[in-house]
Design a protein around this nucleic acid. Structure first.
Length: 511
RNA sequence: GCGCUUGUAGCUCAGCAGGUAGAGCACUCCCCUUUUAAGGGAUAGGUCGCGCGUUCGAAUCGCGCCAAGCGCACCA
């Protein structure tokens, strides 16, 4: 290769060039660095388990082929740590055990390469289970350097970590590198998958039918949020990405598809981004005929407890500094009761927004003049009560004005039969005795439409077709929605939602 | 959208009363092969996020921009 003089070449690029050179050297040996398949017959974890009693220094005649990524090379290639998706196994590649040509080829191996090894099981005098390599096959040549292991003051624990990469931007933009390098990241996303699997399993076992409804809506509804707007060319019409699947799911309930349905749904809300919010997120919504919100509380608790037990083996979890006990039954407090409990003020005694507003003001809660009674109550709750709610608790009986899809409370027409479940202070579930009365639903929509006309960008508008569906008759129905990302955060002790979404939304970077 | 903080080698970081950059590991080469976060030796690697300004001189000071983190607002 011609040496281009003195243009500054980054270390990264020079490493890349070196490795591209090695591709050529491999080609000279007739080796394809990107072959089609490899016949592996063992995983690192299975071997570690199977030979856990093999004493240090012992050799066997048991041959296996393993494959994985080179994570460390020690002693000039004599010891290689190979990592597959189950774990790690050491390769012992002494030159006496391999043919000379293999030994030469081994010199072309870099950390990061994916290799297949064939050899016998032994445990080194040091006690490390190893594959005593007879030969190996290059399965994919890596051209870029991995983030390197650090020198460390923290000894033993550190020995298990090959590399580190803590730069958050790289973590999220190049998740593939984060995954290669950080066991915690791999663990989190494996748990995420398992959590979703267990949610599905629990509901399916309970007789729920999994359904799919549109993500492209002609009208955003089912929640209070601003939507993303897109355009369909052939139909020449704007569509919104769904902010919630709620109204479509209840249409299916009207149809009587099943007494129990659920959908795991990606939703999109055009709102701010922070440690608990990503513009696209995953929620589950479920509906069950002939039950009310009381049944939904039990279901919520049992579902979460089941998932925790299956995934973590316990319902007592630790999140940050908090010990959280997810064992059912969970606490229940009415919203007005909780406010009274924490502040001594009973907002149920105020019958006009003005009274509620004045009281909230005197309690130093930020409220606006235009707010209705329900909004003020909610603001007071969020300011005075919510931050203290660490253990799981269902907050019951939300004000009617802020719950346009929930049935009026059977004992108090200012309230609805709605609860939100708080864990670690976060809303993780929201559920109602679903509003099934088409006349009332129209009134609620009209109130929302009025708020929207008065500048509330997140208020709902009237969905005529949905009312039409309700007019055919919706059986008494309990419904519940749960934020899957937050559930995953909770069960994986993740401090930010970005740690549980593989590719969180980030700004595009212009080269 | 607002405020605060951060951005130096592949990674983790130091340098910042202004004098054109350092460390460890990684990389390259040599020695060493049942030695294991190996060891010994020698190299190489940087538009100091981007731009403008102040200055004889800017990684360092000022302004603007970009990106990220955290907080606030909005929301799940």
């Amino acid at each position: 290769m011609t040496q281009q003089t003195k243009e500054p070449v980054s270390a990264k690029e020079s490493i890349r060039q070196t490795r591209i050179q090695k591709l050529a050297e491999l080609a000279d040996k007739g080796i394809n660095p990107y072959p089609y398949a490899f016949d592996k017959d063992a995983d690192a974890k299975d071997l570690q388990e199977k030979y856990k009693d093999l004493p240090a220094g012992e050799e066997t005649e048991d041959f296996y082929s393993v494959a994985g990524r080179v994570m460390a090379i020690r002693n000039s290639g004599m010891f290689i740590d190979l990592m597959d998706t189950t774990g790690k196994i050491q390769i012992f590649s002494h030159k006496e055990n391999m043919d000379p040509e293999m030994v030469k080829t081994l010199k072309l191996v870099d950390i990061g390469d994916i290799l297949g090894f064939y050899g016998s099981i032994r445990r080194t005098p040091r006690g490390e289970l190893s594959i005593k390599a007879k030969n190996f096959k290059m399965l994919s040549k890596s051209l870029l350097p991995l983030p390197n292991k650090q020198i460390s003051e923290e000894k033993l624990e550190q020995l298990k970590m090959y590399h580190t990469m803590s730069d958050t931007e790289t973590k999220y933009r190049q998740r593939y590198v984060d995954l290669i390098v950080n066991e915690k990241t791999r663990d989190t996303f494996r748990k995420r998958s398992l959590i979703i699997q267990k949610v599905r399993e629990y509901l399916t076992n309970q007789g729920f039918l999994e359904v799919e409804t549109p993500m492209l809506h002609t009208q955003a509804s089912g929640a209070n949020a601003r939507p993303f707007i897109t355009h369909h060319n052939a139909l020449n019409m704007d569509l919104t990405l769904r902010i919630a699947p709620e109204l479509h799911l209840k249409r299916l309930m009207v149809g009587g598809l099943s007494e129990k349905i659920f959908e795991l749904s990606r939703c999109f809300r055009n709102e701010g981004i922070d440690t608990r919010h990503n513009p696209e997120f995953t929620m589950i919504e479920l509906y069950q005929s002939y039950v009310d919100y009381n049944e939904m509380m039990v279901l919520t608790e049992n579902l979460v407890a089941y998932v925790a037990q299956e995934v973590l083996g316990t319902t007592k979890i630790k999140y940050g500094d908090n010990d959280i006990d997810l064992t059912p039954p969970w606490d229940r407090k009415t919203m007005l009761g909780a406010i009274k409990e924490y502040t001594g003020v009973d907002f149920g005694e105020f019958f006009t927004p003005k009274e509620a507003y004045d009281k909230a003001k005197s309690m130093h809660v930020e409220v606006d003049e235009g707010m209705n009674w329900g909004q003020i109550v909610e603001a007071v709750f969020e300011a005075k009560v919510e931050p203290t709610l660490i253990q799981p608790v269902h907050i019951l009986d939300y004000p009617r004005e802020i719950s346009p899809l929930a049935k009026v409370h059977r004992d108090n027409d200012r309230l609805t039969e709605r609860f939100e479940t708080r864990v670690n202070g976060w809303e993780i579930a929201n559920a109602f005795s679903e509003l099934t009365d088409p006349i009332d639903q129209r009134h609620r929509f009209e109130a929302q439409a009025l708020a929207k006309a008065n500048g509330d960008e997140e208020a709902m508008s009237i969905d005529e077709d949905y009312i039409n569906a309700l007019e055919y008759g919706l059986a008494p129905t309990g419904g519940m929605g749960m934020g899957i990302d937050r559930l995953v955060m909770l069960l994986t002790n993740s401090p930010t939602i970005r740690d549980v979404i593989a590719f969180p939304t980030l700004k595009k970077v212009e080269n």
